[in-house]
Amino acid sequence: MVVNDGCKCKYHVWRPDIDIIRHEVTFKPINLDICCSCKLFSELGILCCHCLRILHVHCVSSIPNKYILKRWTKKVVEGRNVDIASVFYNGGVPSSIWAVEISMKFQRLIVCSQDNNVARQFCDEAVENARKNIEAEIGDVNIEEGAVSSSSGIVQDPSSRRSKGVGNKRSSSVIEKKYNATRGRKSAANKLASITKGPVQSLVLENISEIARDGYLVHPSSGGSQFVHFNKNVDID
Rank of each mutant, 00 (worst) to 15 (best):
P64Y: 04
C48K: 01
S149P: 00
N117P: 00
G146V: 03
N81M: 14
W98E: 15
F106I: 10
S103Y: 09
R131A: 07
V141T: 08
R71I: 12
K70P: 01
K70V: 11
Y67E: 05
L69E: 08
N129Y: 08
E135V: 01
I84P: 00
N31I: 03
I138Y: 08
L55R: 01
K39Y: 13
V87P: 00
L109H: 05
A147Y: 08
A136N: 13
E101F: 06
N142S: 10
I138K: 11
A85T: 09
I46K: 09
G45P: 01
S62M: 10
S96P: 00
R22K: 15
E125F: 06
V76P: 00
D83Q: 14
R80W: 08
N133K: 13
V118D: 15
I138T: 11
V100P: 00
G153W: 05
E24M: 08
V111W: 08
A130P: 00
H23T: 06
C38E: 02
Y67M: 01
R80E: 12
L47Q: 05
K39S: 12
V118I: 14
Q121M: 13
A119I: 02
Q114V: 09
R22Q: 14
L55S: 02
L55H: 02
L32W: 04
I102F: 07
R22N: 10
S149Y: 14
S96W: 05
I68E: 04
V93T: 14
G153D: 06
V25N: 01
I143M: 10
P29C: 02
R161W: 05
L32M: 09
E24T: 12
F27L: 03
L52F: 07
A130D: 05
S86G: 09
L52T: 06
N31S: 10
A126R: 04
K105G: 05
K74A: 14
R22S: 14
S86F: 07
V155C: 10
S152C: 08
S103P: 00
E144C: 08
C36K: 00
S160M: 11
F106R: 06
A147H: 07
C36P: 01
N117V: 15
I84C: 03
E137T: 15
C35G: 11
L69Q: 08
K28V: 11
K105D: 13
H56K: 13
C123Y: 01
S86I: 07
H50F: 04
G92E: 15
C49M: 12
I138L: 07
Y89Q: 15
V127Q: 09
S37C: 02
E78S: 11
N65E: 15
K28E: 15
K70G: 03
K132N: 12
Q114K: 12
S151P: 00
R80C: 07
D140G: 02
V141Y: 05
Q107L: 08
I134E: 11
I63R: 02
M104Q: 15
C49H: 12
